[in-house]
Simulated assay, not measured.
Amino acid sequence: MAVNIKAGIVGGAGYAGGELLRLLLLHPNVELAFVQSRSQAGKPVYAAHPDMLGETELVFTAEAAIPVDVLFLCAGHGEAAKFLSENQVAAETKIIDLSQDFRWNEGTATANVEADSRSFVYGLPELQREQIRQAQHIANPGCFATGIQLALLPLAQQNLLTSEVHVSGITGSTGAGQSLSATSHFSWRTENVSTYKVMEHQHLREIKRSLLSLQPEDQPAIHFIPYRGPFARGIFITAYLQSELSLEEAQALYKEYYAEHPFTIVSDQNPDLKQVVNTNRCVLYLQKHGNMLVITSLIDNLLKGAAGQAVQNMNLMFGLEETTGLKLKAAAF
């Protein structure tokens, strides 16, 4: 029997909310009940997302039209916890939060929302797909966190993170959100590169927590330098560490780990960012230079790093095929 899911989006005017809107409108098992945005309330969704012209006549609502089967929170960091503290959400409604508000409290009552008793499962399917299937509430991972974890999970599972890990990653401007800032203006961003949050990016917290769940002892330091890139979307990560594995052994380890995970692909050829942009895929590429294992990890920050992964989690929670509504074409040209 076909599964019919009534869904709602809180915070649908931003980049992640817009991507989620597009995915859910085309999902064969979803009826999109409402898209909430206080800043755009009363306007058609194509006013904020012009590519939706002719696709839908939905209008942004000022309030969330609860109840629904699944509620996506795209309201930004701090706003998701605030929303749940101020609104009655039925116990049977599944929640997928795309902010960082609940990422560090998986398996426990959340401390972020006053008088709230919900427990959020960390929603990285390649780490804990079975827990997601049983979950009522999901904390969707961060974009850099997703790419870096997928680069390191196979090693952690075999207790092979035995030396310090050095990571650099460059992200598109959409990773900064839709609100304007000095570093998101076109005139500053184009033909320009800069670092930010060097060695203290907030995603390190969830990365370390996940790796500890696989390799609880002798956790090495992770040194991360993020870059702002002169392009709109995508994340290109390079991680390297000392390893006694040969290249062939490392490739076999990674291919075995991800054999049952449809969106993570281990490539034998050096990949480029266009292979993943506009898809829910992560592409990994391994190299060995002397005793250094180098792992390249590529994702689309708005899809596998946000909205696409949220839909992937929804599919798992409702017993659907994991790839439903997510067979997307890469922007090859």
Rank of each mutant, 00 (worst) to 15 (best):
A139H: 10
P141F: 01
A145H: 06
A145V: 04
T146E: 00
G147F: 05
G147T: 14
Q149K: 10
L150A: 06
L152V: 10
L152M: 10
L153D: 00
L155S: 09
L155N: 11
A156P: 07
A156E: 05
A156M: 07
A156S: 10
Q158N: 08
L160C: 12
L160N: 08
T162G: 09
S163C: 11
E164L: 14
E164R: 15
V165S: 12
H166M: 13
V167C: 02
G169D: 03
G169A: 06
T171G: 10
T171N: 05
G172W: 00
T174L: 11
G175C: 09
A176S: 12
G177H: 08
Q178G: 00
L180P: 08
S181M: 15
S181A: 11
S181T: 10
T183D: 14
T183W: 08
S184I: 12
S184R: 12
H185G: 03
H185K: 10
S187A: 12
R189H: 07
N192G: 01
Y196L: 10
Y196E: 01
K197E: 04
K197H: 12
M199E: 12
E200F: 15
H201Y: 05
Q202A: 10
Q202R: 09
Q202H: 14
Q202T: 13
H203V: 13
L204Y: 07
L204G: 15
L204P: 10
R205C: 02
R205I: 15
E206L: 07
E206N: 12
I207Q: 02
R209V: 13
P216Q: 14
D218M: 09
D218H: 13
Q219T: 15
P220I: 15
A221R: 13
A221Q: 13
A221H: 06
F224E: 08
F224M: 09
R228G: 03
P230V: 02
F231L: 00
A232Q: 04
R233P: 02
G234T: 05
I235A: 00
I235S: 02
F236A: 01
F236K: 10
A239M: 07
A239S: 15
Y240A: 03
L241I: 11
L241A: 14
L241V: 11
L241D: 00
E244F: 02
E244V: 04
E244N: 09
E248F: 05
E249P: 05
E249D: 09
A250T: 12
A250V: 12
A252W: 00
A252Q: 05
L253P: 03
E256V: 14
Y257Q: 03
Y258A: 06
Y258L: 14
F263E: 06
T264C: 11
I265M: 01
I265R: 04
I265G: 03
D268Q: 09
Q269H: 11
D272E: 02
L273Q: 04
K274S: 08
K274Y: 05
Q275E: 02
V277I: 15
V277G: 01
V277A: 03
